[in-house]
Design a protein around this nucleic acid. Structure first.
Lengths: 154, 154
DNA sequence: CGGTATTGTTCAGTGCACCGACGATTACGA
DNA sequence: TCGTAATCGTCGGTGCACTGAACAATACCG
């Protein structure tokens, strides 16, 4: 009697959206490399030599998760992990040639997939779609670290 | 050099949105009951006596996942599982009193959480937000079952 | 210089999400 | 009616995602 309409719940919609994306990715992009794995490859193309924690920050994954993703990519020979000689806590990450090739190949397929995924929306709606989701996600992430200073403390 | 801007990738945004929601849920709604678990409770409030597969269909989870979620809810004493006397393959699911109480309590908190989550958007933007996400998710789900007939075969 | 705090990584535990394969049960058709 | 097909649930395997705790290395401060 007091049941709720889940289609007005952003969390439920977000989950369904991600699942839909997951399925499309699997059929149109790759069954081996997942979307989060591609995000890591992409971050390392942009900034080679990052450490794990920073990569996680770039793609939005916590320490534990990023460690697993990187371990899988390393096992597939797509990246190399070297201890930082300047700071023995860090591992510096760098794509292998295979990793670079894989990123290039998937970039093309990902673009095609995004077109199909967003096909139900007109061009201006797509821009809105990005804007709305980004604003909600950014705001919620901001709630996480209320202590994050916007200016450096004097 | 050929790195891509992930903020224009709907899949990446969807993942970030869901993560943001997950965190907010954990702090504002419940640390015990998760959002998918609440979705199952809600489906059983609306339609008591459903079988597992149908519940999965209602909330958008496949058989394996729904089995685990239901097993957890059963372990917590929130629902009962009874073999269908009419069809020995099925289990009929029904909330316990505790399950009903839990759903009621979480419904209130979930509404509050949704308000906070969507606060960055104006009212008309929220409606748009729902509409755009729903359209994309529905279309992608449609691609899944191309054999799904829109009209009953004669 | 030495002790404490911070930082980067790992590990254990829980939960969601998919696929493919399997056994049990029911439905359908020859 | 009897055998094949479809359906429901389970199981094993892979991968994402978080928390909290442990460990090692570095940084900072008295």
């Amino acid at each position: 009697m007091a049941a709720v309409d889940l289609t007005t719940h952003p969390g439920h919609l977000a989950r369904r959206l991600q699942q839909a994306h997951y399925l499309l990715w699997n059929t149109m992009v790759s069954e081996e490399i997942t979307s989060p794995q591609f995000a890591v490859l992409n971050a390392l193309v942009a900034e080679p030599g990052l450490d794990q924690r920073t990569v996680g920050e770039r793609v939005g994954l916590d320490r534990s998760t990023i460690a697993e993703v990187i371990s899988r990519l390393g096992r597939r020979g797509l990246l190399d992990k070297v201890r930082d000689p300047q700071d023995g806590r860090r591992f510096l990450l760098r794509l292998t040639d295979d990793g670079l090739r894989t990123h290039k190949k998937l970039t093309v397929r990902t673009a095609r997939m995004n077109q199909v995924f967003l096909a139900p929306l007109a061009a201006d709606e797509q821009a809105l779609f990005f804007d709305l989701i980004r604003r909600v996600a950014d705001a919620a992430e901001g709630l996480r670290n209320p202590s994050e200073p916007l200016v450096a403390p004097s």
